[in-house]
Design a binder for these strands. Structure first.
Length: 421
DNA sequence: TCTGGGGTCCTGCTACGA
DNA sequence: TCTGTCGTAGCAGGACCC
């Protein structure tokens, strides 16, 4: 363990009910009411719930149908990803004002390493309090902060700092919760083992099978018993965490590994032609995102989830990296040929991995012989969208039988939109 | 009306070349 | 020339996270 780990200098900041809080900022008349973001579509799930809705048992990842059963009078909003991104950027800017060592985990949470900022701004708990104050004053939002000497303990500390839902309304938390290094094991040991990062339903079932219920149970078992149950990598990692060991540092620059788009249809699709039409739009959306980030990719993966929820993936690796919609579509069509959609396809996804910067893109044989063709077309489309909006132009092949239907793909949506087959 | 969409990481298997 | 071994890449599936 390095020297800097001997003091609590890692912050984990998590916005409280972020998506809902942003909606309440824009629609203050909804304050104090049960508000749910997401779960409004026919097959959607809840992305965020206000503390008033949580008091009825509504939580994120729950199906919209179940949420409506539990809290029929809740106000369901479909979610505005671009707005959340905008607010998130403002909040992250506040974090970066404190330290350059900011590792965003998602739109609403981040790790901060404040070891270099303490001489100027005070100790970590003081910095945590000042961040909360600034986020509230400048963005009108509340957040909770965990402070510890390692990332995963800081994250668990945040849970202890968070507001809790109750029938009488939200019970405010401490806002900041500090776990000093010498308190780490006392803090961890009584927690249920599923509190550990990396223990989901499957791992939990395996741990329960060998009698592990708490982090203390896990910490006290010999490492080889955990490895035997969970495999070498996972077992050793969890055993180390249970004993308070986590060598991972805050990483501000994490390269993206894949870019993709997937969508659950409001009704299962049985026809290859319908799926092909969706694929055209997916390829367009993914290619556009690759170009906007200056990336190219080599491995194309198609994901298909059938009506019975079984999921298969098919992938192929191209000879050269690409960022144009035609190449993605050709690869995607080849993979779609390997799938029989007759039993009904619930979800279709297309993603690209093996990413590198587009300056490293190699010319294809066609390009080398005749100059860029589709790449040039795609870039023109990017320019038109930049000037006239995202739905100004799209692939003609994506048009349905009743005319051009342009729905911009690639922006996060919650729940499937109504579709026609 | 069960079960979204964006990802990362790991494991096991197979093919292939040295 | 044949065979076994080893490392690596590609592929598919699964688990997990927010």
């Amino acid at each position: 363990m390095n020297k800097s780990r001997d003091i609590a200098n890692i912050l984990h900041v998590d916005m409280d009910a972020f998506f809902v809080s942003v909606e309440l900022l824009d629609q203050p008349e909804l304050r104090g009411k049960p508000v749910v973001v997401g779960g409004d579509g026919q097959r959607g799930v809840v992305a965020a719930a206000s503390y008033e809705a949580r008091a009825f048992g509504v939580y994120s990842a729950m199906s919209g149908a179940q949420a409506r059963r539990l809290c029929p009078h809740a106000i369901f909003l479909s979610g505005r990803f671009h707005r959340y991104s905008e607010v998130s950027a403002n909040v992250m800017a506040i974090f970066r004002d404190v330290t350059p060592l900011v590792e965003p985990l998602s739109l609403d949470e981040a790790f901060l390493d404040v070891s270099g900022a303490q001489r100027l701004l005070g100790d970590a708990p003081l910095i945590a309090a000042s961040i909360r104050q600034r986020v509230f004053e400048e963005q009108g939002l509340t957040c909770s902060v965990g402070v510890a000497s390692t990332k995963f303990v800081a994250k668990l500390a945040t849970e202890a700092a968070k507001p809790k839902a109750s029938k009488n309304g939200p019970q405010f938390g401490s806002g900041v919760f500090v776990v000093e290094p010498e308190e780490t094991l006392d803090f961890l040991r009584p927690l249920p083992v599923e509190a550990l990062w990396g223990v989901g339903p499957a791992t939990l079932a395996k741990l329960h099978r060998i009698g592990v219920m708490t982090i203390a149970d896990l910490a006290d078992l010999p490492e080889e018993n955990i490895v035997a149950a969970l495999g070498r990598s996972h077992g050793r990692h969890l055993h180390a965490l249970a004993n308070g060991r986590d060598e991972r540092s805050v990483e501000p620059e994490r390269a993206m590994k894949s870019i993709g788009h997937e969508e659950t249809f409001s009704r299962d699709h049985h026809l290859r032609s319908t799926l092909d039409r969706e694929l055209v739009q997916f390829a367009d959306a993914v290619a556009s995102r690759l170009r906007s980030q200056g990336l190219v990719g080599r491995t194309i993966q198609l994901k298909v989830r059938f009506g019975d929820f079984t999921t298969v993936t098919r992938s192929t690796t191209l000879a050269v990296s690409v960022d144009d919609s035609r190449s993605l579509l050709e690869a995607g069509r080849g993979l779609l040929d390997l799938i029989d959609p007759s039993q009904g396809v619930r979800l279709l996804g297309l993603s690209v991995s093996g990413l590198s910067s587009d300056s490293s893109r190699q010319l294809t044989f066609d390009e080398a012989m005749s100059g860029p063709g589709w790449q040039e077309t795609d870039r023109t489309i990017d320019e038109i969208r930049a000037r006239f909006g995202e739905t100004a132009i799209g692939p003609a092949a994506a048009a349905g039988p009743d005319g051009l239907r342009l729905k911009r793909r690639g922006a996060q949506q919650w729940g499937p939109n109504a579709e026609k087959e």
